[in-house]
Computed example of a mutant assay.
Amino acid sequence: MLLWINGPFGGGKTQTAYEIQRRLPGSVVCDPEHIGFGLNRTLPPQLRGDFQDLTSWRQGVVETLDLALTKHDGMVIVPMTVTDSGYFGETVGRLRELGHDVHHFTLLARRETVLKRLRERNFGHLLTYVGGKNVPLRRESWAVRKLDHCLERLQEPEFAEHLWTDHSTVPKTADRVAVLAGLSLRPTTEGSVRTRMRQVRVGVRHIRFD
């Protein structure tokens, strides 16, 4: 089974994916961004753009996830924003055509909620100092520019099932996704401080400097 978690940039997809993976034995997170960033790195800087526009990305995602679903016994979890209906058909739709059981969920929140989350996940001056450049800041600016488009497109019926997360924690969102997908997660017993520290570690691991 594949669990595709969609949503705007900064909407909580990656945190929710890793929360489910942590509490669902045998599950793995497969992030199609790695394919996209790899493709962009092979191109001259002036030719780099939205990697989802590359046919090779869409085909590569299907081929990679098809292999994971065929050879891996556990759940495959994919945190990935896709707002183009054609690209959605070429990835999620194609995987379903190949016979895979794909559960798709879109995490939504009000604009101000997503903006707050983007500010919280941006480690600001510390990352700028450590990285020696302001790439993380530019990345968040790109996410903000895409936000209105994402929120508008992802509310369309084709991107259901929709889950609004304004007043939900990551563990609670993971629980809701699991129930709707027919999954049973291990209960979480850690406190709020430990949960927050773990989420910070997940965020740090997924900072992009390109």
Rank of each mutant, 00 (worst) to 15 (best):
M1R: 12
L3T: 13
N6G: 13
F9N: 03
G10M: 03
K13D: 09
Q21E: 15
Q21L: 02
Q21V: 08
L24T: 05
V28P: 05
V29W: 11
C30K: 11
C30G: 06
C30S: 09
P32R: 15
P32K: 07
E33G: 11
G38H: 08
L39E: 13
N40H: 03
N40V: 07
T42E: 09
P44A: 08
P45N: 10
P45K: 14
Q46A: 14
L47S: 12
G49H: 14
G49P: 12
F51N: 10
V61L: 03
V62L: 06
V62E: 07
T64S: 15
L65K: 10
L65N: 06
K71N: 01
H72C: 07
H72N: 07
G74S: 08
G74K: 12
P79H: 02
G89H: 13
T91F: 10
V92L: 04
E97P: 00
D101S: 09
V102H: 04
H103G: 05
H104C: 09
L107F: 00
L107R: 00
L108G: 14
A109W: 01
R111Y: 10
T113K: 04
L115W: 06
L115Q: 04
L118W: 03
L118N: 09
N122A: 01
H125C: 05
G131Y: 09
G131M: 01
G132V: 04
K133N: 14
P136D: 11
L137I: 06
R139M: 06
A143V: 05
L147D: 10
H149R: 15
H149T: 14
E152I: 06
L154H: 08
E156F: 09
P157R: 04
E161T: 14
S168G: 00
P171L: 03
K172L: 07
T173D: 01
A174S: 04
D175G: 02
A178W: 12
R186Y: 03
T188A: 13
S192N: 02
V193P: 04
R194H: 11
R194N: 08
T195F: 01
R196K: 10
R196G: 01
Q199Y: 03
V200Q: 05
V204E: 00
R205H: 07
